[in-house]
Amino acid sequence: MGIQEFTYLLQGLAWTLFLTAIGFAGGIFFGLVVALMRVSPSAWLRVPAICWIGLFQGTPLLMQLFVAYFGLPLIGFDLPAWGAVSVALTAHASAFLGEIWRGAIQAVPKGQSEAAQALGLHGVSRMFDVVLPQAFKLSLPATVGFLVQLLKGTSLAAIVGFIELARAGTIVSNQIYRPLLVFGVVGAMYFAMCWPLSLWGRTLERRMAAGQAK
């Protein structure tokens, strides 16, 4: 495998990181909305959030990519391949992150919110100044773990013809007829991205467990 093929793989790697960043950033924003709706006392907000989470957790990411790529143009949204994939990854991430953060919000002791209420803080301030900072800390290991899954999930974008790292590996392999070498390099690239994140997530989890034990 020459420098030209390796450079092509690096271009696919850049697209993989780009898709991961877009999906995760969008998932953070919309996931927070979903989480707040999920813990809302209003059924008008809570039920749609439950349905959203159930839909995207209960269907394969591959199907979600197909729907975004082929379905959005049918309703007037003619997006490029990377745009459709980004929409699918964002929706997918928002459902999973929303449920992760819902659990973290509900894991914060109620006494914290009650103490804030006793100090005269209104509902929005109690949530954003007292509950969410603690919930974010509790959810951090699971959030990092999902980021690893999302990064690996970008490989499914190849099914709609988008050239990210896995697809670039397939193209290079078909050109030089050395699949073991090419996918060994591709696998090493995924490992170099995912392993540090997994290690960080486990470290955070151990720190939290040690802090709770004290």
Rank of each mutant, 00 (worst) to 15 (best):
M127F: 10
I3G: 05
T154Y: 01
G76K: 01
A107N: 06
G83H: 10
F56T: 01
R126H: 09
A135W: 11
W82C: 05
G145T: 07
L132G: 01
L62A: 13
S155C: 06
V130W: 00
A188C: 10
F183D: 03
L197P: 04
Q149D: 06
F162P: 01
A142N: 10
G145C: 02
G120Q: 13
R207S: 11
F70Q: 02
G31E: 09
G211W: 08
R178P: 06
G2F: 02
L197N: 04
S155Y: 04
E5V: 03
G169K: 00
S40H: 00
T20D: 00
A210S: 04
F96Y: 15
Y190R: 11
P109H: 13
V185T: 14
L9W: 00
A91K: 02
A158K: 00
T143K: 07
P73G: 05
T7E: 04
L147Y: 07
L89N: 11
D78N: 15
T170K: 06
W200P: 11
L32S: 13
L55Q: 00
V144I: 15
E205P: 01
P73L: 08
I75K: 09
V131I: 15
L17Y: 02
I28P: 05
Q175I: 11
Y190K: 07
P179F: 12
V67H: 05
L61G: 03
T170F: 06
G161M: 08
G184L: 14
G123D: 12
G161H: 04
P141T: 02
P60H: 08
S125D: 14
V47I: 13
A157E: 08
F24K: 09
I171M: 03
G12L: 02
P133W: 14
G111D: 05
F70L: 08
L19M: 14
A157D: 07
I75P: 07
L62V: 14
L138I: 10
V87I: 08
D78Y: 08
G120A: 15
L62Y: 03
G123V: 04
T203V: 07
P196E: 07
G58P: 08
M189A: 05
V39E: 00
C194Y: 10
T143R: 02
I105C: 01
R38E: 04
Q149V: 13
V33P: 10
A107I: 02
G23T: 00
T154Q: 08
D129C: 12
A49W: 13
G153A: 12
A88W: 05
Q4E: 14
A81D: 04
L156T: 07
G98W: 09
A135F: 10
